[in-house]
Simulated assay, not measured.
Amino acid sequence: MTTGSLRQRNNGNKQKVYQNVSPTTNGATTNLQSKLANISAELQHATQASTHRLWTRAVIAASVMIVVYFYSQQHNSNETKFALIKEKLPLRIQKFECSKSYKAEIRRFPNCVPKKCGRFVSDQLVEEDEVDKLLNLARTILSMAGSSGGASILNLHTGALSYKEQFVNAYRVPKVVAELKEHHLTVYNTVKNKIKKAIAEQFGIPAESLYLTDPTFFSRLTNATARTMNDEYWHEHVDKDTYESFHYTSLLYLNTYQKDYKGGRFIFIDGSNANLTKSAIEPKKTRVSAFTSGAENLHHVEQVTEGERYAITISFTCDPDRAISDLHIKTPNL
């Protein structure tokens, strides 16, 4: 057997082997292709079903969002804007009948009965430099203490100062007293008298019949989680029910909604059930709002969601027995 014949035989065997393998490979390929085609069809069907389900879910979700949107629009349509930050209001006032309970109680003080109850807003009672002094004072002192929750209070008349989850006496803290300067107290009393005069004029009563009452205080509201009931400032309430001595309530806003914080609007709630409407005040630096303290002015403050909201609540009574004196510097009581 020559090398050539061996080479030939080997070539022939190789060819036979390839030929033996080739028909088998073609058949397997055909079967494999058939299976792959089936799998592909199944995957396509599954993908289409999955895509259809996703699309269906997306349509349902969009529908829900549309319903929620229109519901919220309908709900918000019952809200009026009593004072917007973009407005510069010399005076905006709304008058209405007093609640029966308020009318019955205030009759004990004939000179202090309003011609009608109501609410007003003014952006021209207090000067910006006056607000700057008060805001700086509040920020400085509350930065030394402050609540662990969302509402911190500083009452310069009683000395009550929020500290973590309790109150301390600010006049027992020398560094707090050191911040109180005579010019702060002068501005504080001047602002109080301006607001007192405006309340008397707008509600048709003599200013002499109004007395500053407790609590009158600075507040700082944030989005911190409430730790105590004092931190839950957003609940609806009537001032006269919360503070028996109140007859007229006022607030001076020390900084501005949307610029310095978000949330924190002041909301009056009028009517009930299907006739319920809300009237919103957007706080603004130097803005004063004032109102009779009875059930005719149910209200709440929206939760602050970002930043720090500063204001002063200045409250007045018609009862001389519930009056407090003007602010003056106290010596530290160690």
Score class of each variant (00 low, 15 high):
P283K: 02
Y71I: 10
T317I: 02
G271C: 02
K197R: 06
E130D: 14
P320F: 01
K278L: 03
S325Y: 07
L137V: 08
Y248N: 00
I60F: 14
K103Q: 15
S279Y: 06
T213Y: 01
Q303C: 05
V176C: 00
T190S: 09
I66H: 10
R220E: 09
Q44W: 03
F246P: 01
Q94W: 01
F203N: 01
L135T: 09
S143W: 07
W55G: 14
Y171W: 15
L254F: 04
V301H: 13
S50Q: 05
L91N: 10
L212I: 02
S63V: 05
T292L: 11
L125P: 05
I312W: 03
D319P: 07
D129N: 15
L36R: 06
K35Q: 12
Y188W: 10
F82V: 12
A145E: 14
M229Y: 06
A224L: 04
T277Y: 04
D132V: 10
I85H: 08
L43Q: 10
I269R: 12
V59A: 09
V173S: 02
S40F: 03
P283M: 00
P206I: 03
K14L: 10
Y102F: 15
I269A: 09
L298D: 09
N223T: 00
L91M: 15
A46H: 14
P283G: 04
D231K: 02
T313K: 07
N189I: 00
A226H: 02
A274M: 11
E282N: 07
Q303G: 09
S5R: 12
H157V: 02
G263T: 00
T213S: 05
Q202N: 15
A170Y: 08
F82C: 12
E87D: 15
Q303V: 03
S34E: 07
I205T: 01
P110T: 10
Q33D: 14
T313R: 06
V131Q: 08
W55M: 08
F203I: 03
L251N: 07
T140G: 05
S72W: 02
T2C: 05
G159Q: 11
L334I: 15
V176N: 07
R57D: 11
S72N: 15
N297F: 06
D326M: 09
Y211T: 03
Y69D: 08
R220C: 13
L84C: 12
